[in-house]
Write a protein that binds this DNA or RNA. Structure first.
Lengths: 344, 344
DNA sequence: GCAGTTGATGACAGCGCTGTCTCACCAACT
DNA sequence: AGTTGGTGAGACAGCGCTGTCATCAACTGC
């Protein structure tokens, strides 16, 4: 910076003022400084600046992985908002328990970021308390944490609407496929199941536990097993609502491999509207992870700029059903199809 | 840090030494300092430290998006290596041309990272020259840049092997589906096409331009058109090699919707081994983006620690064919199937 | 027993900025 | 002419660390 000052024939103070866009610099001087800075390829060191200002101009995020559609999309949205605000994005990836423990013990984000966004962990009380001690705004993404700022989609309403869509088509036996074993990465499964049940109750239908099966996400064999169980029921379902698109796709795959027509004999709907849903032309409940990222970013920035802001604010994002071609009215006869396999 | 020093009854120098794990601290003092630091919830400010050491302990990456399987997986691998080295990860997302121009004009990573990893952009000469001026190691990921460290998979060999797999099954009319319009995000399409051609030439087959069609990635309609063109040929292909799994899946989808059996009538192979390939049981050429990320991270760290290291080093990663159930020998008669649609 | 050596610790400058205080200068007043 | 107020610019301390040097005690060996 001293070099720039010398070249422009001013003091470092003036260079600093110019580069930060402060108003008390005359146009001629400003031009001189800017030219000198460009010629010397000068960029201020954020680190040195943050030492004085106490602001790091960067936001940290804690994510369980980077290779998931949800996290990737949300971070893309977040990055957009941050760039607009001149903030950088630092990512802490915590794939397992060991890393998680280490993170919460050392809290490396402390003093190295202006805010922290925590993605989809089922945090313990201790962990949230630990984050409180960070002394910076912490925004919880895709999870509700009481009394702390959170951003998430309305999973209950989404599953409710998705199930209603199937009910409106005339289905009365609607199965629900849960996912299990996502390893601390909370996928709101509880909420979505609640929405499903609510829709059935609303329609005056009984809650049949036989119709709720579970499978590990992204595991074809698990899905096949779950589907087999459903088809083997005395009164098999005419529709399946899957907690995630990935599972819905696996279900469709299995059904078609078993020569069960989708949607002719069984309708299938998913939740998320991942890209794969479009390839499969899958009826699904769409959420927008990039909107979640944007909202979370905006909330974090607001809290950074106004530390006295309301830290109990929750942002709940909507979902909407996208009807595509994997759902249709149930087969006309409505007799229990003991023999589900028959070709057209 | 002064607080910790006071509490432990030592000087700040000793605290610094202890917390950095330097050896010249007696065990008793070390224990005292560590306890004091824990009690006060103290963590050194990387920013202040970097001001003195000149090292930021963070690595920057430049990516076109975060919501792609490849980038996400590679970053996960990278994050792993960086965490092991105590480095942080700062992400610059450059989704469009405007952001790209701004990035290369201001080079915000300057002095704020120890190294930069550039993902899959088709950089101009000017842009690489600009990055050279950064004064820090720059590693190019998933692209070859002459004279600069690069990490990428051997796309030519991959496509060669993938095509050979189809040849070995007995196919002689093998189509290639390229992707277009990925907007500055280089997907090595040229190299893969080269490998495909090489395999055909090797087998003594002619290069028929009719058999090479293009479609936008992830666009079902484009894929349908491309498939339509192939099926409409006087002598349609018995196998399709797609540049990416996404495209392969779209091709299969279209084929099956047109009542063409896969792999009965037409075999389809992809490239990447994305998760969707497993759901479809798609034969594909597997690459490991997380290995790319790990290698790139390791290379960057090596260059940071040894600035005199060989900056011309290229790391080329292997691929391997995963035969699954979308490829099979061509239909026996080998007559030109004028009427491709027929059910079993 | 004393110079030389080793090991543990403290004092202090300074990394590259920013915020505050100060000052020179000029226009617009009494 | 003298005073005031406002504006643009410079001087300087200090943010929180680290690296260097100085210090001092406890040894070592002749």
């Amino acid at each position: 910076m001293a070099d720039v000052a010398e070249r422009a024939g001013v003091s470092t103070s003036t260079v600093s003022r110019t580069l930060r866009g402060l108003s008390t610099v005359s146009p001629e001087v400003r031009a001189r400084v800017e030219r000198a800075a460009r010629e010397l390829n000068f960029a201020v060191s954020r680190h040195a600046a943050s030492l004085v200002t106490g602001r790091t101009c960067s936001v940290a995020v804690l994510v369980p992985t980077l290779s998931s559609w949800f996290v990737g999309s949300a971070l893309s949205g977040l990055a957009l908002v941050l760039r607009a605000a001149g903030m950088e994005l630092t990512v802490y990836v915590i794939p397992g328990m060991a890393e998680r423990t280490a993170f919460f013990e050392h809290l490396p984000a402390r003093r190295n970021a202006d805010a922290l966004l925590v993605f989809s962990f089922d945090l313990t009380e201790e962990e949230t308390a630990r984050l409180d001690s960070l002394g910076m705004p912490v925004v919880y993404v895709s999870q509700h944490v009481d009394g702390r700022p959170s951003v998430y989609v309305d999973d209950v309403a989404g599953a409710l609407r998705g199930t209603r869509h199937l009910l409106n088509l005339g289905h009365r036996r609607i199965a629900y496929v849960r996912t299990v074993g996502t390893g601390g990465f909370s996928f709101s499964s509880q909420e979505r199941l609640v929405g499903y049940r609510q829709a059935l109750t609303e329609a005056g239908l009984p809650l049949d536990d036989e119709l709720v099966v579970a499978t590990p996400a992204g595991d074809k064999r698990g899905a096949a097993e779950a589907v087999g169980r459903l088809l083997g029921l005395r009164e098999p379902p005419t529709a399946v609502f899957a907690e995630q698109d990935e599972v819905a796709v696996a279900v469709i795959w299995t059904l078609r491999a078993t020569r069960v027509e989708v949607p002719g004999q069984v309708s299938v709907a998913g939740f998320d509207d991942q890209p794969v849903a479009q390839w499969f032309d899958l009826t699904t409940v769409a959420q927008s992870p990039s909107a979640i990222g944007r909202e979370a970013g905006a909330l974090a920035l607001a809290l950074v700029n106004d530390p006295g802001g309301d830290r109990r604010r929750h942002v709940v994002l909507p979902t909407h059903v996208i009807p595509r071609t994997t759902t249709a009215p149930p087969p006309a006869p409505r007799s229990a199809p003991e023999e589900p396999a028959r070709l057209p």
